[in-house]
């Protein structure tokens, strides 16, 4: 990084390091000035003018001092930075507004009471019934999806050859892309056939369908990381393949498999659409997932938003429930990643 004073014949001339900031400051000042002069009020216009001036200024100055190629490089750099900052704004706003508005009503009472005697537009009530329903539905879905997913992954990695394995791989991939509402409609179409009323376990089935491919994918990746030497050593000792898988392959990759399952749980815990179709929602506590409508946390958020006709109390509850849900998902994520790091197989890479 030469300063303007050093004249080198080996390097082209370079702008000083502070030049982007200077150009940025200059263009903002000019943009504001022009906006005032032209009597513009929208802050978007101000930003747009300043941004345009910045890009043109950078390009012009750099092209003069450093040459066209360097100028393009500088413009690309600033565009990439702008894209990053642009994306940060909504994402920060999302997290901030959820936390700031969520803490208003989030307390012990909120977590331990249902909406039993509270109508949607008055304050009070809580999410106990929703947490209970969510936990039950997600747990049942995990009980179904995790074994099937792990076994399928074992089949694909340890046994899978030929057309069946190829078909399974392809459809697992395609299955990851099924919209959650379609999974809900599938279970719904079965329920319509048998004339069933909505109940919690139906939601679990739809969630399990969404969860399976995720578990298969992540478990597959983990099993592939297990070095072949381990399998060969075990088989060479005369141990049958199934015991090799159970006693050598799985223990080696158990950390990664657990992580994958937890991430999948985090994903389905936030699904609303299938629950809306199949579990229906309930403002009372229903601890039995096999009979009667239940509540779930994401569905609770939606219903508080949609059924309240703009009542502030309901919005507050929706935000608090969102905060709870995000906290649950984030903790699952963090713990899962922690396990992954802690139990990572030593692959010698």
């Amino acid at each position: 990084m030469s300063t303007a004073a050093t004249v080198s014949t080996l390097k082209g001339a370079r702008l000083p390091k502070w030049s982007p900031y200077a150009i940025a400051a200059g263009s903002v000042a000019l943009g504001v000035g022009i906006s005032f002069a032209a009597d513009l009020h929208s802050s978007i216009q101000w930003a747009l003018i300043a941004g345009l001036l910045f890009v043109l200024g950078t390009y012009g100055i750099a092209a003069r001092v450093e040459g066209r190629r360097q100028a393009k490089d500088r413009v690309a750099t600033s565009l990439v930075w702008v894209a990053f900052l642009l994306a940060v704004v909504p994402l920060v706003s999302l997290v901030w507004s959820t936390v700031a508005r969520g803490v208003k009503v989030l307390d012990f009472y909120f977590l331990t009471h249902s909406m039993g005697l509270v109508s949607d537009d008055e304050p009070g009530g809580g999410i106990y019934h929703a947490i209970l329903g969510s936990l039950e539905q997600v747990a049942l879905a995990t009980l179904i999806a995790a074994p099937i997913g792990v076994l399928t992954a074992i089949y694909l990695v340890e046994y899978g050859r030929g057309r069946l394995a190829k078909a399974v791989t392809f459809f697992v991939d395609v299955m990851t892309g099924i919209p959650s509402i379609v999974a809900g409609l599938f279970i719904l179409s079965i329920m319509l056939m048998f004339d069933m009323e909505p109940f919690g376990f139906a939601g679990s089935l739809a969630l399990a369908i969404l969860m399976m491919p995720v578990v298969v994918r992540s478990t597959e990746e983990m099993l592939k990381l297990v070095p072949n030497e381990l399998r060969e050593a075990s088989l060479a000792l005369g141990i049958p393949k199934w015991r090799t898988i159970l006693k050598v392959v799985i223990p080696t990759s158990i950390g990664g498999i657990t992580t994958g399952i937890m991430l999948a749980v985090a994903r389905i815990a936030g699904e609303t659409a299938p629950v809306l179709l199949l579990v229906w929602g309930n403002s009372l506590i229903n601890a039995n997932p096999f009979e009667g409508a239940q509540q779930s946390l994401p569905l609770y958020i939606y219903q508080q938003y949609a059924n309240s006709a703009g009542a502030g109390a309901a919005y507050d509850r929706a935000w608090a429930a969102s905060l709870t849900l995000i906290a649950f998902v984030m903790i699952l994520n963090l713990v899962a990643r922690g396990i992954a790091r802690w139990k990572a197989p030593k692959t010698g890479r």
């Binding site: 076994l151 459809f171 199934w242």
Partner: peptide, 22 residues
Amino acid sequence: DRIFLGLSRGSGILLLVIMAAI
């Protein structure tokens, strides 16, 4: 071995069946 292969292949097939059923 046969049981284990059957189980794991069975879950793979189950996934295909679910897709078809949908």
